[in-house]
Simulated assay, not measured.
Amino acid sequence: MLLSAVFLAPIFFSWSAVAVFFLLTGASLLLGHSVGFHRRLIHRSFDCPKWLERTLVWIGTSVGMSGPLWMIRTHDTRDWAQRQADCHDYLAHRQSMLRDAVWQLHCRLDLQHPPAFDYGEAGKDSFYRFLEATWMAQQIPVAALLFMGGGCSWVVWGICVRVSISVTGHWFVGHLAHRTGPQSWLVKGAGVQAHDVPWAAIPTMGEAWHNNHHAFPGSARIGLHPDQSDWGYAFIKLLQKLGLAWDIILPHHPDRAAAVTQMASALQPERASPITMRGI
């Protein structure tokens, strides 16, 4: 995908193809990756009709990172490891940017004694097992529609460029989010602490407020401060207004007072947060 994007995108450049790229990238990251995969399938931070969940998960699969079950396993392995006092460099993003890029984008970590996983309802869902087995092939129907709409130009920009940017961008923001940036919370006993990446808030649909997410992993709302954009949560609230989402979990719902410490910088009046330790 990356080679095709680098060599073919300039040849098949058109403004309509660029517009398709931005539209599909934004829509798939918002609906699929942020809301479908992360906040619904992995953390189950809200409830919705099964048909809607499956639609969002299919969109998440079309982002091009992996199938739904592998996404759960990768996410939960990393979360489990980062909560330990000692975390492997691969899972902590502790190495240099170049080495971490090679590891995360081109390698796989095989553990001799991996933790056991229970995929729950997702593991029993035949549709999700189908997506897991065919996740790469899910680009084919998207490519067919793009070809009918705008020919090769739309396919190159709507598939190759989109997938390359989404996958590489996911690693890049994740790398930064575990190395440097603002922090409002510290997770007690965790070997890896998260940071926020403010400039990436809109491109990631709110996922870049990663320090907040480490503190309240089950919350559907990740952008906690008034100045923290969170389009993923805004979309969930829209679904709620339409009667398509309910039982939305917010930071103050789970009891996290014993697990996290709020930093003094988060208590400044100009950054007044709806979540404080007293509020918890």
Rank of each mutant, 00 (worst) to 15 (best):
L91C: 05
R108H: 07
Y90K: 07
A81E: 05
E121G: 10
T77Q: 13
M136V: 15
D125E: 11
G64C: 02
D110L: 02
F46K: 01
L111Y: 05
F147D: 07
A143L: 10
L146I: 01
C48K: 02
L146K: 03
M97C: 13
A137K: 14
F117N: 08
I42W: 03
S126M: 11
D86E: 11
G64Y: 00
L91I: 06
H113T: 14
R44I: 06
L52G: 02
D76H: 15
I72A: 04
A101C: 10
L98R: 14
D47Q: 11
H113G: 08
K124R: 15
D100E: 07
D100K: 02
C87M: 11
G120P: 07
A122K: 02
W58E: 04
C87A: 09
L31M: 05
R40N: 03
M65F: 15
L30M: 05
G64K: 00
Q139A: 13
Q84T: 09
Q84R: 14
P141N: 14
I42D: 03
G67P: 04
K50I: 10
W70V: 12
Y119F: 15
L105N: 10
H75Y: 14
C87Q: 12
L31P: 00
D89F: 12
Q138F: 05
R108E: 08
G67A: 08
I42M: 07
F147N: 06
H33V: 08
D79F: 09
Q112G: 14
D89K: 13
T74I: 11
Y90G: 03
L30S: 00
V102Q: 12
D79P: 10
G149S: 07
A85L: 12
G26R: 00
D47K: 10
R129V: 03
A81Y: 00
M136T: 15
A27D: 11
L52E: 03
G36I: 02
R83Y: 14
T134C: 10
C48A: 09
F46S: 01
F130C: 07
F127L: 11
D76G: 11
L145I: 13
F127W: 12
A116I: 09
D118N: 11
R108F: 04
A85E: 13
L131R: 09
S28M: 01
A81N: 04
H33C: 11
D47Y: 07
T77M: 13
R99Y: 06
V142P: 01
L24A: 02
M97G: 14
L146T: 02
A137L: 15
S45D: 03
F147L: 05
R54G: 04
L56S: 02
I42E: 04
